[in-house]
Amino acid sequence: MAQRGLPQSKEALLKSYSARLKDDVKSLLENFEEIIKLAKGESDSQLSRMTQCEQDTYEMHVRSANIVRAGESLMKLVSDIKQYLILNDFPSVNDAITQNSKLFRQKQSEADQKLMMLRDDMAADLYDLEEEYYNSVYKCRIAD
């Protein structure tokens, strides 16, 4: 299998991607839950009400910011995985190379063929033109 051939670092990288995914999703869920809990407001503490409210407000802000961060981190993860795939997808690169080389070979043979035809035509025409030129009285000045 291709998976077995992966070097250690690649393996670790893939694992870190999956860990990041889990962490971010967990963070989304946990923070949301915590916000809901705070909204219930059943905490008994010795703090005064105002302090408690202030603390709750602050905590909610931080937790919602955490949710946003986790979401953006997921986007970053998607982008990273895309990049990883693009850079390490050797089968598709090989396909592209094969396709390109096939295309260029085809172009080469086409160009060769055309050049050959052109050469033959030109040789034939050149023969006639040379014949005509050297037989004529008018000859151009020869540049050194």
């Binding site: 916000i35 409210c53 709750d56 407000t57 909610m60 802000h61 937790r63 919602s64 910011a65």
Partner: peptide, 11 residues
């Protein structure tokens, strides 16, 4: 609470 939730929602 409403205010706190509103702030969180805005973020």
């Amino acid at each position: 609470r409403k205010k706190a939730l509103g702030g969180a929602a805005a973020v």
